[in-house]
């Protein structure tokens, strides 16, 4: 950690004057050192040969430190993965911090170090950013916005328009892990567990899949907020076809399954971070899963459903015992049950 002559962030650190420069010089520019950032201009000038994908996301998670990561790691992975889901290889990100005054500098440093490590692993550079400080009580320790940009993979054609009847639906890993890890440390709901968030960068995995399967990948999405149920509902609505999923094929960590049981939560509606769902040409689905199983973060991947012409715009789940039910979009926030 750099030598800073203050212990907590105050309003002055966002004021643009000496304090701001002190913070930026020692904590940001040194840590994220790269050619584009060092121009210290208002923005970064970038050049690309091909089409690009752009995505932005804001991170307001509470608590900011959680089992398996912190808000910094999430802020990089979230945007990196969104760009990757478009079929692009993310290259640059912006980093905007909204800090509540009073945040200990040690915590800010831990977050920034995590941003750097995560960006390095994903192979993206932080090329521009912003720092604002709000009064105590006007924020929740720290909010982060990141915007990512990346060049499209030459073989990628990712669109809901490409989905057709018979497409197989593949999930890359266990559901509900991130949401349950966060819930285990939420005030009032704490429970002892070894479950850690699965936040990770999926971009390297996606590139390898695009290299091999190209246009047979019809759609990719990361089912974050609202869980896989809400993502499937959005897709079913857009394609005006039905989606069938099979409960017994959906991978879930047994500890996460147990926690959902105790909390009265449906894992299909719990937030995810380190997984994606893919709609794949039926004849290539088995090969796709086999390949994914050998790649980083893909060992639990499985085919969990298919696209059908029946029940347009609806998602229907076949339960473990063979019964069928409609899976609807999540309503508001999932609230823990009474008993």
């Amino acid at each position: 950690m750099p030598q800073l002559d203050f212990d907590i962030i105050t309003l002055g650190h966002g004021g643009g004057g000496l304090l701001t420069n002190n913070l930026l010089d020692k904590a940001i520019f040194e840590l994220f050192d790269n050619e584009k950032l060092q121009t210290r201009h208002d923005g970064a000038v970038l050049s690309f040969k091909n089409k690009v994908a752009l995505s932005t996301d804001s991170f307001v998670i509470s608590p900011i430190f959680f089992p398996g990561g912190n808000i910094g790691e999430l802020a990089v992975n979230g945007t990196v993965n969104d760009v990757a889901m478009c079929g692009a290889q993310p290259k640059y990100i912006s980093l905007a911090l909204i800090i509540e005054e009073g945040l200990p500098v040690t915590e800010l440093w831990d977050i920034l170090v995590q941003v750097k490590a995560t960006a390095d692993k994903a192979g993206v550079l932080v090329v521009t950013g912003d720092t604002k400080v709000v009064e105590s009580g006007k924020g929740d320790k720290i909010f982060i916005n990141t915007t990512g940009i990346g060049e499209m993979h030459s073989k990628a054609e990712i669109s809901t328009h490409n989905i057709k009847e018979g497409d197989k639906i593949i999930i890359s890993g266990n559901v509900a892990t991130h949401g349950i890890a966060i819930m285990s440390v939420r005030k009032g709901l704490e429970f002892e567990t070894t479950i850690e968030s699965d936040t990770c960068n999926l971009n390297h995995t996606i590139v390898e899949l695009l290299d091999e399967f190209g246009t047979d990948i019809h759609l990719m999405r990361d089912p974050t907020r609202g869980g896989v149920a809400s993502t499937f509902n959005e897709i079913a609505r857009d394609i005006k076809m039905g989606i069938n999923i099979h409960q017994s094929n959906i991978p879930i960590d047994s500890r996460v399954d147990s926690a959902c049981e105790i909390l009265g939560l449906d894992p299909l509606y719990v937030a995810n971070e380190g997984i994606f769902i893919a709609f794949i040409e039926a004849s290539k689905a088995d090969d796709f899963v086999r390949k994914l199983n050998t790649l980083e973060y893909g060992s639990e991947a499985a085919i969990i459903g298919e696209v059908v012409n029946e029940h347009p715009a609806k998602v229907v789940l076949t339960s473990n015992i063979g019964g069928k039910r409609v899976v609807n979009m999540q309503v508001g926030e999932q609230l823990p049950r009474i008993c």
Binding site: T318, S319, N320, G322, G323
Partner: peptide, 9 residues
């Protein structure tokens, strides 16, 4: 009953 689709079975 409803979640597991038992009623229709």
């Amino acid at each position: 009953l409803v979640k597991n689709g038992i009623i229709d079975m």
